[in-house]
Simulated assay, not measured.
Amino acid sequence: MIWILLFVFVSYGMIILGFAIKIKHAGTFDNHTRAHRNRFTVIVPFRNESKNLPRLLASLATIDYPTSNWELILVNDDSTDNSLEVIDQCLRSYQISNVIIINNLRATASPKKDALQTAINKGTHNWIVTTDADCYVPTQWLATLDAAIQQEQPLMVIMPVAIATTAQPTLLTAYEQLDFLSLMGATAGSFYFGLPFLCNGANLAYDKDAFVKVQGFANNDHIASGDDHFLLEKFQETFKNKISYLRSPDAIVTTQPQELWSAFIAQRTRWAAKSSAYTFWFSKLMGLLVVSVNLMSGLGLIYLAFAKAETQSLIIIALLLKIIADGILIATEAQFHKKLNYLKWYPIVMICYPFLSTYIALKSLTSSYQWKGRYYTK
């Protein structure tokens, strides 16, 4: 049994270290393109986001890209707060003119996918760019994306996302930062490995004609989340060599941290709930490996107090493999995102992570969850 544990941990460690090595060798994107050629439809679904929309719209107002080459579609997903009034005030204050506000046309069990599909049908440009209402974007966001498309000719572009920093870090904010850096590392590393299996709809772009060719969100619109992941799987199957990863500081979209542990767990449960419907073999493998390693890590930490000396040594070796591999990948991303200061939290987060991660994985398989005031069941 111990040797099986070691095999699993060695396999996991090799893959995670492979991600980190590939990221280091890849470097960052060099934007040497000056002419703006592509046209973008930026889509932002929102539901009760009056608190966050001013920040997003303020950032979009500073976009350094010709307004004739991009449009913004805001999709109201049945908001019950004063989001529309806030949007109206912001548009007048920031003098943003290339904006369309529409209502979500519900057709499936996934409000987010419906909102995106509604906007895609309404959009006039051939490149779709998605972000979320609780995000803000950098000034050179679209210019950098345009350059990457010109240089690499992809049909989908995966881009990095960061969690906003807080003035006084807590265990929750540190845990979320390191957890998200790990996800971003796996996102970038798996792409450079030739097996992209993660992306984030808060910063994703794809060709509209290609979206139509892969039938968009069809066949997975019964799942509440996963508008990004399942679309990536479809592009991976149909346009395998036409997916790019845009690793540039000028392409990082920043999202807001969760303020409560309950909100964080609900968010992660929603993300994990779609995993049983993955079709890409590497997605399934990584999902199984991550759950297995975290479950074994938690049990191993508990069992250390009771095991014999020889068994304790093997457990410690296995745990060290995970700690070192994860630490290197997280440190690689922390350097890119300029968040090295969060690494001091790594020891305590490392102890908590196996237990919380396993709890969320089990919860996603057995429980319903609430998000944006809506309840979703398995």
Rank of each mutant, 00 (worst) to 15 (best):
I324S: 14
F217R: 09
I96M: 04
E310H: 03
Q153I: 12
L295K: 02
G216A: 06
W127M: 01
D326T: 07
S110C: 07
P160H: 11
Q140W: 00
Q312N: 07
D209H: 13
I252P: 14
T144L: 00
T33Y: 11
I317H: 12
I324G: 12
V291N: 11
E233Y: 00
D250Q: 07
I16W: 13
P54C: 14
L288H: 09
Q370G: 07
I101H: 01
D81S: 04
Y369P: 06
N48T: 09
F280I: 06
S59A: 10
T173C: 13
G185Y: 15
L288F: 13
S368E: 01
R47F: 07
A202C: 02
I23Y: 02
N52D: 15
L299N: 02
T131R: 00
A35E: 09
G226V: 07
L183Q: 09
A251R: 06
F46W: 01
N121S: 15
N219E: 06
N52F: 00
I120D: 13
W281C: 11
I265L: 01
L84Q: 01
S262N: 12
A218P: 02
N241L: 14
I252A: 03
R270P: 12
A309E: 06
S357C: 14
T118M: 02
G373I: 03
A174E: 12
E333I: 05
F40H: 01
